[in-house]
Design a protein around this nucleic acid. Structure first.
Length: 463
RNA sequence: UCCCCGAUAGCUCAGUCGGUAGAGCAGGUGGCUGUUAACCACCCUGUCGAUGGUUCGAGUCCGUCUCGGGGAGCCA
């Protein structure tokens, strides 16, 4: 007896006896010829295994005829080439044991299509659907591809902290972490007495591992982080989560051009990996979610990304003749409609925008010689907008210090970050990529809440 | 957080001019078939999101709230 997964069984090139398969029933069809077809899925692949259960099985009348969508079963039998259409192999059951029943009156999943909104309310059951099974497999493959890409290039995987004492990372509102009883917080001089809290200081969930990654880049060379990130912003969109996963490479002795090269190669590598390793799931997305998704991915792999300076982008937008709701002006941030015009209408490919005005970018970005712009880079994708944000970092102690003061931050809070520029400073660059946004792009899924198993958004922490 | 749209059977939705609700799917029963989103017939299914108001009468009109969707902002 050999327990194998459905994916393995379906790819057998000849029959094999004494096989055990375990999984969940998707549908049952009875033949009055004296047997039933039972389709079993075990998550190993999109396709179901067709099990043939003959009426001579001892529990045929009592159990097998009562099997419904959702039951878990253990099937022992012989894998044989299927005489029917639609599958190469099938399993002739010698025994079929129901491990867990699913009352059809109350089991919420049906054989028909459900809305994603409904499935979100049953996140404990939605991975048993075709779409969410496919997403889980693609998400897994993309995670592996991320590690493969960096490991093949000698990057070191760094675990940066989830809990942070720096409340000034500057990338948005943070979740507070405390062990205080909320109804009896100790106060001192009208403020919470943080010195009595667990860490003895105000503490938060991280909004980025970048600053810590820089520490390791300036010791190990090329490093990357890949982990959860938290933003307490009240964002209610199809592209935002309060908890999401971010990939953040950081490279020593690397300038903005090297940063762009890595980002471009990285994205293409991931897309290629998914197309090569998740063909069945990608065909599914292409058929049922977005009819152009495979073409789109193949196009992006074969195309060069368009690199433009912020100033060039402003010129293109102002001379485009296009009517925008928000005016285009040098010095103000580009709106979603502007980014969409560049990607979708003008260049029909991903666009890399560089050299943004310093006032609309973070303090740690390296100042250009013009003293007005910084060595920033945003990678803009059609439909989903900004997917990567990165920059060459300011490596000059004096310039970084004056930038920190200029925007009103306290240099004491950044003492260790500043010291990196004092002792053996070196040019270095990095970027952050929103993992779920890339999954959205790869699968064609419209809502980011459907590409993470358990989405956290304002007002939603169930499951 | 702002703008727009929506909430009706387990699911997906229709519901006209204000007159106490319907279809498909699912489920049940029977039939049929190496079937494969199976098919055919019959049967069952409702706090019309919550709350207040207008009205003889509200799923329908008005106010408030909750939740969801699309867009915007913030960003990845």
């Amino acid at each position: 007896m050999r327990h194998i997964r459905v994916a393995q069984l379906l790819s057998l090139d000849k029959g094999e006896d004494n096989i055990i398969v375990m999984g969940w029933v998707r549908t049952r069809r009875d033949s009055k010829g004296g047997f039933s077809f039972i389709e079993v899925n075990d998550g190993s692949c999109l396709g179901n295994l067709q099990v043939i259960a003959d009426s001579t099985l001892p529990n045929y009348q009592d159990e097998i005829l009562k099997i419904q969508t959702g039951c878990s079963v253990k099937v022992t039998g012989k894998a044989v080439p299927s005489p029917g259409k639609g599958q190469k192999m099938e399993l002739q059951a010698k025994s079929l044991e129901v491990l867990g029943w699913a009352d059809p009156e109350t089991f919420p999943l049906q054989k028909k299509r459900h809305s994603f909104e409904f499935l979100r309310t049953i996140a404990h059951l939605r991975p048993r659907t075709n779409t969410f099974g496919a997403i889980a497999r693609v998400r897994n493959a993309m995670s592996i591809a991320i590690h493969k890409f960096f490991q093949e290039r000698g990057f070191l995987y760094i675990h940066t902290p989830i809990l942070t004492g720096s409340d000034c990372e500057g990338a948005g509102d943070m979740f507070r972490v405390t062990t205080f009883e909320l109804d009896k917080i100790p106060f001192k001089d009208g403020k919470p007495a943080f010195e009595q809290d667990f860490f003895g200081a105000p503490s938060h969930l991280t909004v980025s591992g970048q600053l810590e990654a820089e520490i390791y880049a300036l010791a190990m060379g090329d490093v990357y982080t890949f982990g959860p990130t938290f933003r307490a912003e009240n964002s209610n969109t199809s592209r935002h989560l309060a908890e999401f996963w971010m990939v953040e490479p950081e490279m020593a002795f690397c300038d903005l051009e090297g940063d762009i090269r890595t980002a471009t190669e990285f994205i293409k590598y991931i897309l290629k990996y998914v197309l090569e390793n998740c063909r069945e799931d990608m065909d599914f997305f292409n058929n049922f979610i977005d009819k152009t998704i495979i073409d789109t991915l193949e196009n992006i792999i074969s195309q060069d990304f368009r690199i433009l300076t912020y100033t060039e982008a402003i010129d293109i937008l102002t001379s485009s003749g296009e009517k925008f709701e928000y005016p285009v002006k040098w010095g103000s941030d580009l709106q979603a409609e502007h980014e969409r015009y560049l990607c979708e209408k003008r260049f029909h490919c991903p666009v890399v925008l560089i050299n943004y005005p310093k006032d609309i970018k973070a303090f740690y970005m390296k100042l250009n010689e013009d003293n007005k712009t910084v060595r920033a880079m945003d990678v803009l994708f059609p439909k989903i907008g900004e997917i990567i944000g990165g920059s060459q970092r300011e490596e000059s102690y004096e310039l970084l210090l004056s930038r920190i003061k200029e925007i009103g931050l306290n240099p004491d809070d950044y003492w260790w970050y500043l010291e990196l520029r004092k002792f053996g400073s070196a040019p270095h660059s990095g970027f952050g990529l929103g993992f779920e946004r890339l999954i959205q792009f790869v699968t064609g899924m419209a809502n980011i809440r459907d590409v993470i198993p358990f989405p956290r958004t304002p007002g939603n922490i169930s499951f």
